[in-house]
């Protein structure tokens, strides 16, 4: 399988790999996917008092496209409000990375990871009840 140069770039030099400290303030975590499907994404966001995502980190178990998709969204969510972050769509991710059809599910998973992280943040901060995010893993 041939990967686009953008996927290769994110794969070789992933942005924002890591984990925030457990005690860090304003941190929320979204974990989506399942090992049996071949992809697990963990996206963490750090939200400041104004409700703006000021930092993001990820860890991903998955193919190059999954790693690239999660790396890309850590860049994209930074500086966005939670609601703005929720407007990021998988089609944009897929387009940016030139994902082939068989890898579209990676971009879907990345979108789901954003939703899960935002939902986690809102749940922690009492804005709404923790809602399970329906994800579309194992479609690949």
């Amino acid at each position: 399988m041939s990967y686009s140069t953008k996927v290769l770039d994110h794969y070789e030099n992933p942005r924002n790999v890591g984990t925030f400290g457990k005690e860090d303030e304003g941190v929320a975590t979204g974990m989506v996917g399942a090992p049996a499907c071949g992809d697990v994404m963990k996206l963490q966001i750090k939200v400041n008092k104004d409700g703006v995502i000021e930092d993001a980190k990820f860890k991903t178990y998955g193919c190059g496209s999954a790693i690239a998709s999660s790396s890309l969204v850590t860049e994209w969510v930074k500086g966005k409000t939670l609601d703005e972050a929720l407007t990021i769509k998988n089609t944009q991710i897929a387009e940016e990375l030139a994902l082939p059809p068989v890898k579209i599910h990676c971009s879907v998973l990345a979108e789901d990871a954003i939703k899960a992280a935002v939902a986690d943040y809102k749940a922690r901060h009492g804005e709404m009840q923790g809602e399970m995010v329906e994800t579309a893993a194992c479609k690949g």
């Binding site: 790999v17 399942a34 049996a36 994404m41 860890k59 991903t60 178990y61």
Partner: peptide, 23 residues
Amino acid sequence: EMSPLWDMFKEGVDLSTVKWASH
């Protein structure tokens, strides 16, 4: 380093007991 599963394994989490969001 990049794998969330490796972290969990290192923390002693038994992955077979985890309820994955997608299932």
